[in-house]
C-alpha cells in the first residue's frame, strides 16, 4: 500500500473540503472493506484518505412519519438487517446473503453502493476498462465468465458489485449526496453509471461528494424480494441477482412493479420492460418466467458468459415468485 495522509473530520462540510477535486487524489474511507484491498493492490493510490466514520449525522436508521425510512450511509450491513422490518425484503435478503459477519459488521451501506467492480482484470492492474499496453481491450477475448451480459456495448464490461443497488432501485429509493454545492437527492436508478473512461467512476458522485443517506419511500403494501444465484455459500459474490418490488390489488393482480438485476451489467440494471409486463397480471410461474425472458431480451453474451443470461432470467423469475408468494 502506498502511504497517505489521513484525516478524520467530524462534519460533512469538513469532509468535502478535505476531498480532492480529481478522482484518484483522495479517497473516502468508511468500513474500509473494499478500499483497503484496492490500496493494497495499488488499484487506487490516494495521497489522502478521509475517514467519514466520525461524522455522527451519517449514522442511524430512522423511520419517518410518512412510513419511509432513512438509512445513514455509515449504517453497517448487519445493523441494516437488524433494523429493517419485513417490507424491505429486497434489501435485507441481499445483505443477508453476504455470508461473512465480519463484512456485515464492517461494511457500510454507503460503501456497498460505492464499492469498485470486482472485474479480475481491473483488480490485476489493467485498469477499469481492462486494456493491455497497446490499449487493446482484454475482456472480449479473455476470460469473461463473470462479466456483463447487459449494457456491455461500451468499453465497460465489468459488472457492478453492489448487491444493495438493485434492491434500492426496486424499492424506488433516493440517495442523498452532499458536496461543495450542498445536498442533492438522486434516484437510485440514476445514481449508477457506466463510466466512459478508465479515470471515471461507476456512480454520478463527484470526487468531492459523499453519500450521506439512503431514503426509501413507504413500503406499505409493497412486497419485495431478492434472489441471488450463488455458486458457493461462503464468502462469495452472486453470479446474477434480481430484486423485485410488487404492489398487488385485492384480486392479487399486480398494480405496480419494479425489477432490477444485479451483477449482470456495469450498473444495477433496471428491467423496466419486464416490470411493465407484470402490471395487470396475476403472478403465476409462467408469468414470472415470461418476465424473466423479457428482462434479458436484449442481453448479449461475451465469449464465455452466455450462461449468465439463463441465470439472470431465472433470478428474475424466482424473485418475482418470492415477492408475490
Amino acid at each position: 500500500m502506498q502511504n497517505f495522509e489521513y484525516a478524520s473530520p467530524t462534519t460533512k462540510e469538513q469532509a468535502v473540503e478535505l476531498l480532492g477535486k480529481q478522482w484518484g487524489e483522495t479517497e473516502v474511507i468508511a468500513g474500509g472493506t473494499d478500499l483497503l484491498s484496492l490500496m493494497k493492490d495499488f488499484i487506487v493510490t490516494p495521497k489522502r484518505v478521509v475517514n467519514i466514520k466520525n461524522i455522527a449525522e451519517l449514522r442511524g436508521v430512522t423511520i419517518n412519519r410518512a412510513g419511509g425510512v432513512r438509512i445513514g450511509a455509515l449504517t453497517s450491513l448487519e445493523e441494516m438487517i437488524e433494523r429493517l422490518g419485513k417490507g424491505y425484503g429486497a434489501l435485507t435478503q441481499a445483505a443477508k446473503e453476504i455470508t461473512s459477519p465480519q463484512i456485515r459488521n464492517m461494511g457500510t451501506v454507503g460503501g456497498d453502493l460505492c464499492q469498485r467492480p470486482r472485474c479480475w482484470y481491473f483488480r490485476a492492474g489493467f485498469g477499469l476498462m481492462a486494456k493491455n499496453e497497446n490499449g487493446e481491450p482484454l475482456v472480449p477475448n479473455g476470460d469473461n465468465r463473470y462479466h456483463a451480459i447487459l449494457g456491455n456495448d461500451g468499453e465497460a464490461k465489468f459488472v457492478s458489485a453492489s448487491s444493495l443497488g438493485p434492491g434500492l432501485i426496486a424499492l424506488a429509493a433516493k440517495i442523498s449526496v452532499f458536496g461543495p454545492k450542498g445536498a442533492r437527492e438522486i434516484d437510485a436508478d440514476k445514481f449508477f453509471v457506466a463510466p466512459k473512461s478508465a479515470s471515471d467512476r461507476e456512480t454520478v458522485l463527484a470526487p468531492n461528494e459523499i453519500v450521506t443517506a439512503i431514503n426509501i419511500p413507504s413500503t406499505v403494501g409493497v412486497r419485495s424480494a431478492t434472489y441471488e444465484v450463488r455458486q458457493r455459500e461462503a464468502l462469495d459474490w452472486p453470479m446474477a441477482a434480481a430484486s423485485v418490488a410488487l404492489k398487488l390489488d385485492a384480486a392479487k393482480k399486480v398494480t405496480s412493479a419494479r425489477i432490477a438485476l444485479g451483477h449482470v451489467a456495469p450498473t444495477p440494471w433496471n428491467a423496466a420492460e419486464a416490470a411493465k409486463f407484470l402490471v395487470g397480471k396475476t403472478i403465476t410461474e409462467d408469468v414470472a418466467a415470461e418476465a424473466g425472458k423479457i428482462a434479458v431480451a436484449n442481453a448479449k453474451s461475451l465469449s464465455r458468459n452466455a450462461y449468465k443470461i439463463q441465470l439472470a432470467q431465472v433470478a428474475v423469475k424466482r424473485a418475482i415468485l418470492q415477492a408475490a408468494g
Partner: peptide
Amino acid sequence: EFYRLAGLRD
C-alpha cells in the same frame, strides 16, 4: 474470492 474454497455451509 474467485479461487474458491468451500466454506462450512457448502
